[in-house]
Design a protein around this nucleic acid. Structure first.
Lengths: 351, 351
DNA sequence: AGTGTAAAAGAAAGCGCTTTCATTTTTGAT
DNA sequence: ATCAAAAATGAAAGCGCTTTCTTTTACACT
């Protein structure tokens, strides 16, 4: 008999929505077959498969994720915890990440730690309890309990926004230290010798720390030093950048180059320079980091390091998806950054 | 006998992690009691409860979300779909939303529709399949199938970023039309009569449309009109703002006030005015919308409408959580916006 | 102590799916 | 046609929890 022609009997259970069993009945097959149509279509004969999908359509059947997860022991959810969700850097990465995992049939679950390690630990716990199959976290510095928990639960994970971490954790990101070092070398080549840095707080932020160390070690290689009073740790923000820049410029021997650990500080410096009557780059060169959109629009336009946010998101997704599909995959390679030279940097004034 | 003293026997199942049953055994109670400790602690006697929590601690027990969801028919997940995740407006709302729902023990699941209704429909389907208990969507214009799906599944939902919608959908947001109207009245009071607008594309974007209509209807009330050639629809972006502004200023009778439907357009206008030698607000007044951070930093600082992103997130969360807990709750009230007057607007030049 | 009532605890039946194992059907070589 | 091997299907046992219903225990009052 021609399977395809069999009639589909619709049962209206009234309340709630159709289950896989309903579909099976309507299509006149066993539940197992319906399940297979969903998970491994090519193992079921075309005629039957067609009938099943017709029934699915007619009943507007939507699989029940929790039941699926419980039976198959995978939720098809991937978790991501960011220090903040209100941030165009992480936003760019999140957008790319979500797109990639969704394309593979996964759902993205997010949480914000608000830059608080204790909160991050709670988030991890919650996400694990929600059942995520894999996880990505920003940077490497956090409660050890986090690493222990994901190890014990055997959850594939990858740290992002950095390219390597102590302890051999897999990472998808770029080398913050090297990027900062390159920037520093560029400024040294322009003849600068008196440096200052405006940085995010180092605590709980290995990215900020790495950028600082990249600057510092490069200077030391050339026999220069970066005294602590010339390293200003601030909350990220334009106003903080203004204040710090003003402070630096009021020093007896102001720096000839101010390296900002993040773009907003540099925007602040540029805005403040107008009030101060300091010329950039005439009197002092200023650099940013991350290359957000105002960098190219502001006057003077800002020399900055372009960070590969989308690439990070895509790399994270590819790595985790590969892991989840059981593939043997090497840890991601470091992603390149680009130094974008614009008008905020120039030769050092002759001393 | 003293319950609290009973010893806790740890069973190591080796593989995988502890289940609720393991906890029950370790604590010497029934699984039902452990479940109650988790879901309604005060219904179990303190001594016993203590023992259970001790066992939970010792076994590092983490509840299995999917099993929980399957049995209780709620996932404790809330879904949110945004046109983009890489956007500080939605980012601010998302951050607040995530914080609120997490505090209530819920997990936030996100998706990006990339401003594409078809993609949004897929997203909704996926999220529903993931099992979200509630959902929030940006604006009101979308595939009707979306509304039908969430109605059929009886999923509590709320539209955000707007304050009302045809069809009686609950909304958490502000009145885009009225905010734009107020801004327009302010400019009219400054003596402006020749207006232009740079707007986001209207298609699939009821917020942009409402802002336009707010401007247009207010002008019409005063007997003025806003001819189509003075309404420029552009993709959101600074460069697009520059180009549009240049175009407007090259008209035979350039406008004396340019209303931008979003801040980035206005930043572009301000940047371009420097190249053009047009003075703001001397020659032309410019306004933004959303009041992003550059508004207060740029020169001239930008008059803009401050949109309550965090409040929207909080309102969405409160409304959905109330719905989920079965409370009778009225639809959210519109949230107020604030017109922030700065230096980019001034009296119209005497004609 | 003894009783009645309310509170606490337990037993057991699923929630909707996947997956193993057994059975049936199909295929292809003879 | 025939048979062995392979492919397709079905039956049924859970996945780890919640929740209803029932039984047990605690408590207040004579």
């Amino acid at each position: 008999m021609n399977d395809e022609k069999k009639e589909i009997v619709i049962i209206d259970r009234g309340h709630g929505s159709a289950t896989l069993n309903d579909v099976a009945q309507a299509a006149g097959v066993s539940p197992a077959t319906v399940s297979r149509c969903l998970n491994a279509p090519d193992v079921v004969r075309p005629a039957k498969r067609k009938r099943v999908f017709k029934a699915i359509e007619e009943l507007s059947y939507v699989p029940h994720g929790a039941a699926r997860a419980l039976a198959s022991r995978r939720t098809r959810m991937i978790g991501a915890i960011f220090p903040s969700l209100d941030n165009t850097l992480f936003g760019g990465m999140m957008e790319a990440l979500q797109g990639e995992v969704a394309a593979a049939g996964y759902t993205l679950v997010v949480a914000s730690s608000a830059y608080d390690p204790a909160q991050e630990l709670k988030d991890v716990r919650n996400l694990i309890s929600s059942g995520i199959d894999a996880l990505t976290l920003v940077g490497a510095s956090r409660e050890l309990a986090v690493y222990e928990m994901i190890r014990r639960k055997r959850i594939p994970y990858v740290l992002n926004w950095i390219s390597k971490a102590e302890g051999g954790h897999p990472c998808a990101g770029f080398d913050n230290l090297e990027a900062a070092a390159r920037l520093t070398r560029y400024l040294l080549d322009l003849g600068h010798r008196r440096f200052a840095m405006i940085s995010g707080h180092f605590i709980n932020n290995d990215r900020a720390m790495a950028r600082f160390r990249g600057v510092e070690s490069t200077l030391r290689e050339r026999g220069l030093d970066l005294p602590p009073e010339r390293v200003l740790e601030r909350r990220f923000g334009v106003d903080e950048g203004r204040e710090a820049f003003r402070l630096l410029m009021s020093m007896p021997e102001p720096p000839s180059a101010v390296i900002c650990g993040a773009d907003p500080f540099a925007y602040g410096a540029i805005f403040e320079s107008l009030d101060l009557g300091v010329r950039i780059p005439g009197d002092v060169s200023v650099t940013g980091f991350d290359d957000m959109w105002p960098a190219s629009q502001i006057t003077p336009s800002l020399t900055s390091v372009q960070t590969p946010r989308r690439e990070i998101g895509i790399t994270v997704a590819k790595y985790l998806l590969a892991k989840l599909s059981g593939q043997l995959i090497a840890d991601p390679r470091p992603i390149e950054t680009r130094l974008v030279v614009r008008d905020s940097t120039g030769p050092a004034k002759h001393a």
